[in-house]
């Protein structure tokens, strides 16, 4: 498959680019592969060959990769197609699982190690704040899956009655504020007694989580939302 695709709007990636080059340019893109359930190894194949092998839209993959690599990247509406809706919902569901099963517990485990070096008050307060933060995010995901994704599933099966972008008024600013706050509070209250390597690893985890959640919100706001709008216009 060598379908010609305009890449002028897509960061610096092209369908002909080797997967190796893509990952080398931004190793954090590896998390996209696991969320899209893409099989390893990649060998020497290109983006378009990998997408063909795995049954993914090349354009959608490149938009996701571009949004992940550059948080200021916004997909152009003219490149969004209604048939991408099912695939993007699968990606977002997989992202929710990735946070719930991997990133949030992994960060919690590191926090526990750090808390062993804190006084009793800081231990209980910071643990409680992180637990509440985790629960808030999980509740937000559940609400999205129940109130948005399930309706979009219905749209994909032909029920376009309720499919419109007003569905998508879930607040993401709260999550960003809380992610920022947990990072600030942990940064400012890291116990000096804890080994430096442990403190640095903790901060790397907390900032990675915050930044990844921001990218996730961007995908929902600037990719999913306009796609829903396009879908509802084409089925009206």
């Amino acid at each position: 498959m060598n379908k010609k695709i305009s890449t002028a709007h897509l960061a610096s990636f092209s369908p002909e680019m080797k997967i190796f080059e893509l990952v080398e340019s931004s190793p954090s893109l590896l998390s996209i592969f696991s969320r899209l359930n893409i099989r390893l190894p990649f060998g020497d194949i290109s983006i378009s060959e990998m997408c063909e092998r795995e049954g993914h839209s090349v354009e959608l993959f490149m938009m996701l990769a571009s949004m992940h690599a550059d948080t200021s990247f916004r997909p152009s509406k003219e490149h969004l197609k209604p048939e991408m809706l099912g695939e993007i919902i699968e990606y977002l569901r997989a992202s929710h699982r990735y946070y719930a099963e991997h990133m949030l517990p992994h960060t919690a485990a590191h926090l526990e190690k750090i808390l062993q070096h804190c006084d009793t008050l800081s231990q209980s307060v910071l643990r409680r704040f992180y637990d509440d933060y985790t629960q808030y995010i999980i509740d937000h995901f559940n609400e999205e899956e129940r109130n948005i994704f399930s309706i979009i599933d219905g749209c994909a099966e032909g029920d376009a009655r309720e499919c419109n972008c007003n569905l998508f008024d879930m607040p993401h600013a709260d999550i960003d504020d809380r992610s920022n706050d947990i990072a600030s509070l942990i940064f400012k209250n890291l116990p000096e007694e804890a080994p430096t390597s442990l403190r640095c690893t903790m901060l790397e985890h907390i900032y990675a989580l915050r930044d990844d959640l921001r990218r996730h919100s961007n995908v929902e706001m600037y990719l999913l939302r306009p796609l829903i709008e396009i879908y509802s216009n084409t089925t009206r």
Binding site: D177, R178, D181, I182, L185
Partner: peptide
């Protein structure tokens, strides 16, 4: 403080 949410400010 660099903290925005009410929950964060409380902590």
């Amino acid at each position: 403080t660099g903290i925005r949410s009410v929950a964060g400010l409380t902590v």
